[in-house]
Simulated scan of single mutants.
Amino acid sequence: MGALIRAEFRKTFTTNLWWALLIPVAVIGFGAGWMGTTFVGIINSVQQLDRPVPLALLSVAMSANFSTIFGALFGALSVAGEYRNRTITTSFLTSNPRSAVLVAKLIAAAAIGAGYGLVNVLCASLGGLLGASQDLGNFGDIGDWLSVGGTCVLAMVLWTLLGVGFGALVANAVLAIILPLVYKFVVEFIFSMALVGSNVPGIGPYLPGAAGNGIVSNLAVPLFITAVAGPDEPDVPRVAFEVLHVFFGGHYGHPWWASLLTFLAYTAVFVAGGWWANQRRDIA
Rank of each mutant, 00 (worst) to 15 (best):
V186P: 01
A100K: 00
G29P: 00
G117L: 02
N199P: 07
S147N: 04
A61K: 10
F189G: 13
V187T: 15
A110D: 02
R238V: 06
I283S: 04
V103S: 06
M1A: 09
G137K: 09
E233N: 08
R84M: 14
A227G: 12
V200M: 14
L181H: 13
V46S: 11
Y266P: 12
G71A: 03
L77G: 04
V187P: 03
R280L: 12
E82I: 08
N199H: 10
A72L: 12
S198G: 03
W159V: 13
L264A: 07
A265C: 11
V119K: 01
I112T: 15
A111N: 07
A268Y: 09
F30H: 01
N16I: 07
T37S: 13
I112R: 10
A64W: 01
P201T: 04
S217L: 05
V182K: 10
N16Y: 11
G230K: 01
V60R: 00
I112C: 06
I112E: 07
V153I: 13
V46K: 14
I28M: 06
F270N: 08
A100V: 01
L22Q: 06
L58R: 12
A110T: 04
V46N: 06
W159M: 12
L73M: 07
I190V: 02
K105F: 04
L73T: 07
L57M: 08
Y183K: 11
P255R: 02
V239R: 15
G250P: 04
L195Y: 03
G75C: 03
I107T: 07
V246C: 03
V148T: 15
N65A: 12
V243W: 15
G165W: 05
V243R: 13
S95D: 03
A61W: 06
G81E: 09
A3D: 14
F13D: 04
N218L: 08
D50M: 05
V53W: 11
G2N: 15
F241N: 12
S63P: 05
V46D: 10
I88P: 00
F30D: 05
A64H: 10
L175F: 09
K105E: 00
T87E: 04
C123S: 12
L118W: 09
A104F: 00
G75Q: 02
K11A: 13
T94W: 05
A155F: 01
P237L: 03
N218H: 06
L77K: 07
H254F: 05
I225F: 01
G163K: 03
G127H: 10
V271H: 09
R280M: 08
H245M: 14
E188L: 09
W275P: 03
G273V: 06
V186W: 05
Y116I: 02
D135R: 15
V119M: 06
